[in-house]
Amino acid sequence: MKWLELLTVAGATLIAAVTVVVLYSLGVRLTAIAADAQQTSPGIKKSFAYVCFGLCSLAVLFGLYLIIPYFSG
């Protein structure tokens, strides 16, 4: 039985999903903070939020790379 493979899949799933969700949530939180009225430097918070979203889109691109056999062989 392929228990090891099962564990790998479970682990990879957990790590990948948690990374993406944490990054995106941080992005959402930072946008919310930046939108607050009494914010001293909303620009920086906003740009950090965009960095988070950007990392997420990298993850999506990696997913595309995995899906398209032309790239991943």
Binding site: E5, T8, V9, A16, S25
Partner: peptide, 24 residues
């Protein structure tokens, strides 16, 4: 937020399973 979490888990599980060998 919940839908996003669910979709992300689905996407990662499918990609992981189809590339690491335990088909789900």
């Amino acid at each position: 937020a919940q839908g996003f979490a669910a979709e992300t888990s689905t996407a990662s599980a499918i990609l992981a399973s189809s590339h690491l060998g335990f088909a789900l």
